[in-house]
Amino acid sequence: MFFELNDYIWATNSRVVNFNVTDYTFDEATNALSFSFSMDVNGDYNQTGNDLSISGTVDVIVFERVTTSSE
């Protein structure tokens, strides 16, 4: 399992607004990564038709970085 943090889609996609990452920490000695995030999605761009507010907290140990050919 993996995830990627990338501001590209948030900066160019008007469906997602108010995207924020806060409380970001990364410990290079232990590879412990944690942060909180939040965003809003316009109701016109999801199946419910309702505006969505999404938020969460990530607290993980990063084992390795997976790169793509574009990096």
Rank of each mutant, 00 (worst) to 15 (best):
V66H: 01
F26C: 08
A11V: 12
N50I: 04
R15Y: 10
V66M: 06
V60W: 09
I9M: 10
V66A: 03
E64R: 14
Q47P: 09
E71K: 06
G43Q: 05
N13C: 13
T30D: 03
T22M: 03
T12P: 00
D27Y: 04
W10L: 13
N46G: 05
E28I: 11
D7E: 14
D27L: 04
T25I: 07
I9R: 10
S70R: 11
L33T: 04
Y8D: 14
D51Y: 00
G56M: 08
V17H: 02
G49F: 11
F35W: 03
I54N: 05
G49P: 09
V17C: 03
T68I: 08
D59G: 06
T48G: 12
N6Y: 04
N18M: 03
F37M: 05
S14L: 01
E71W: 05
D59F: 04
A32R: 12
S34I: 00
G43P: 08
F2R: 12
T12A: 05
T25V: 13
L5D: 09
D51R: 02
D51H: 02
R15E: 11
D7A: 07
G43H: 06
T30W: 02
L5F: 06
V58K: 01
W10A: 14
V41S: 00
Q47V: 12
A32G: 01
A32H: 15
N46L: 04
G56T: 08
I54D: 03
F19H: 06
D51F: 01
L52R: 08
R15K: 09
N50Q: 13
T68D: 10
N31H: 15
N18Q: 14
L5I: 15
T67F: 00
E4T: 11
N46S: 03
T48I: 07
D44K: 13
E28T: 13
V62I: 15
T67G: 02
L33H: 04
F37C: 05
R15V: 03
T22S: 15
L5H: 00
T67M: 00
S69G: 12
T48C: 02
V58D: 03
V58P: 05
F19R: 06
D7Q: 12
V16D: 08
G49C: 09
I54A: 02
E28F: 08
E28C: 05
D23A: 11
T22H: 02
F35M: 04
V17T: 15
N50T: 07
N42K: 13
M1H: 07
R65V: 15
S38K: 13
N20W: 07
D7S: 13
L5K: 09
M1E: 08
N6V: 10
S69D: 12
N6Q: 06
V66D: 01
Y8G: 07
F2T: 12
S69H: 05
V17N: 06
D27I: 09
F37R: 01
F26G: 04
V66K: 04
F26K: 03
T67K: 00
F37A: 01
S70H: 08
V41T: 09
V21Q: 00
Q47A: 14
S55A: 13
D27P: 10
N46A: 02
T57P: 00
D40F: 01
F3K: 02
A32I: 10
N6F: 03
R15D: 07
F35Y: 14
N31M: 09
Y24M: 14
G43S: 02
G56W: 07
S34W: 00
T30L: 01
D59H: 09
N42A: 11
D7H: 06
T22V: 15
F2G: 11
F3N: 07
A32Y: 10
F3Y: 15
E71H: 06
